[in-house]
């Protein structure tokens, strides 16, 4: 074990009014997942770089000592580990044990390592928080629950999300975060290329 000492950065960045801030953040997360393709503001949490405010807020809202968390790539730093240890208390684990995972899309690959739930408990699957540079409402075409006709969202890939949807009711659920914005992609969403549907 490397020697550990808390840096000051890990002591700051929590919600100012935890119950109220978490409630607002949860509603953004709920709307995002219930309406795939919609983009919402989610603010209040600030973690060490490179974690976005949206991802930090989501972790503060959903994670605690009961939720094993996987940190990938550039997000697996001593500063972020310290921040999570102090603010959230989630145990840092390998992908196969993770209830939540955080990182960029490239760093989280291959997503096949994460639990997708079981036939009897499809809820026991990982929720991936994918940090992206920007979120746009164009790109991949989305259909399915939560979408009136068809929605669009800038996804980092197509095939992994298609394969994930094919696993339904098993599968992974995704949040995409960028700055203070969040979008959701549950396993129930069918993903296709913009060209194909036209």
């Amino acid at each position: 074990m490397p020697e550990k000492h808390m840096n000051e950065q890990s002591l700051i960045g929590a919600f100012e009014a935890p119950p109220q801030d978490a409630a607002r953040a949860f509603r953004a997360a709920l709307e995002a997942l219930a309406r795939p393709g919609s983009i919402h503001e989610i603010t209040g949490g600030k973690a060490p770089a490179p974690m976005s405010e949206a991802a930090a807020t989501l972790l503060l809202t959903l994670c605690d000592p009961e939720t094993p968390l996987y940190l990938s790539g550039a997000h697996d730093t001593a500063e972020i580990r310290d921040w999570i240890a102090f603010q959230i208390g989630a145990p840092i684990v390998a992908p196969a044990e993770a209830m939540f995972a955080l990182g960029t899309w490239e760093a989280l690959l291959p997503v096949t390592e994460f639990p997708i739930g079981t036939a009897e408990y499809p809820d026991r699957s990982t929720t991936l928080i994918v940090e992206t540079d920007a979120l746009h409402q164009h790109g991949a075409q989305l259909t399915g629950p939560g979408i009136k006709t068809v929605a669009s969202l800038s996804l980092p890939a197509l095939d992994p999300f298609r394969m994930n949807a094919a696993l339904f009711p098993l599968g992974l659920d995704f949040y995409f975060t960028s700055g203070t914005q969040i979008a959701g992609l549950p396993r129930s969403t069918q993903v296709s290329d913009m060209m194909e549907t036209n």
């Binding site: 935890p18 978490a22 997360a29 709920l30 809202t61 339904f168 659920d173 549950p186 396993r187």
Partner: peptide, 19 residues
């Protein structure tokens, strides 16, 4: 309490993901 709400919120989100 906040920890209970987080637990319920996680359940709600999984419920949304698997209608």
């Amino acid at each position: 309490d906040e920890q209970t709400k987080r637990m319920i919120r996680r359940a709600i989100l999984k419920g949304i993901a698997v209608p």
